[in-house]
């Protein structure tokens, strides 16, 4: 359902993605792990074309984008449309502070998709219900906790009815006691069959919820396999080193 072919990206002289290839099936939950600076965020942002890759191909459902020679032809309108197929959840939530919770969730359907307000409101309320935040629909984000904000950010992504949701360290900015509520929402989405790519440092979550774990380092995919296998019995030395360092830090 999602195909990433030979994606390359560099910033100035810094090559961040060398040649990334991935295929993800509908309903799969993929945990993307790797050391800081390995290019995980950049890969997610390329998938959502927040950052257009220098070369390669991305296919999501029936839409496809080719980068490289034709890069100059990317039209803002096509990019915006492409982004509507992917939801993105950021580390720092990035809710719109001047809008109520409900308006945050309605913004995409109303302004990007031109859905009528009534319909958008029903859709938004349903998504807020799903993340357990419908009682806060008329509050402003500034009055909410980090965990609540992130659940609303997830509802905002869901309201676009995307084919895949990308999570970039969605729980890293949260106080430890608030991580659980966000992970449990993500777990529910996974159980409902939502396709998800999750950049995370929560190894137990990756092991338990993800179907697959992809380990990246220095802009390439080093190891890719079933979650339990990669985490419990990594094959590549670099994956072993990363995970052992991780376990060492955990205790």
């Amino acid at each position: 359902m999602i195909r990433i072919d030979a994606i390359q990206k560099q910033f100035g002289d810094l090559v961040v993605l060398r040649d990334v290839n991935l295929k993800i099936e509908k309903g799969e939950v993929v945990a993307l792990i790797g050391p800081s600076g390995s290019g995980k965020s950049t890969l997610l942002r390329c998938l959502n074309v927040l950052v257009p890759p220098d070369a390669g191909r991305i296919e999501i459902g029936n839409t496809r984008m080719v980068f490289g020679e034709s890069r100059l032809q990317l039209k803002p309108k096509e990019l915006a449309e492409f982004r509507r197929h992917t939801g993105m959840v950021f580390q720092h939530f990035n809710l719109f502070p001047h809008m109520t919770v409900l308006q945050n969730v309605m913004e995409g359907p109303v302004t990007a998709k031109k859905m009528n307000k009534q319909e958008a409101q029903e859709l938004a309320m349903a998504q807020l219900e799903k993340v357990g935040m419908s009682i806060k629909a008329n509050d402003y984000p500034s009055s909410l906790s980090g965990g609540q904000k992130q659940r609303i950010a997830i509802a905002r992504a869901l309201a676009m009815e995307p084919q895949v949701i990308l999570f970039d360290e969605a729980t890293s900015a949260l106080d430890p006691e608030l991580v659980g509520e966000v992970l449990s929402v993500m777990k529910e989405l996974a159980a409902e069959g939502m396709t998800m790519i999750v950049v995370t440092h929560e190894m137990s979550f990756a092991r338990e919820v993800a179907n697959r774990v992809v380990f990246m380092r220095d802009g390439v995919v080093v190891e890719d396999g079933p979650a339990k296998q990669v985490i419990d019995h990594p094959k590549d030395e670099r994956t072993k080193a990363f995970l052992s360092h991780f376990h060492a830090n955990e205790h």
Binding site: N48, R83, R84, A112, K113
Partner: peptide, 9 residues
């Protein structure tokens, strides 16, 4: 970015 991510122009 959050605006871009929900498909706004």
């Amino acid at each position: 970015e959050a605006g871009e991510a929900i498909g706004l122009m």
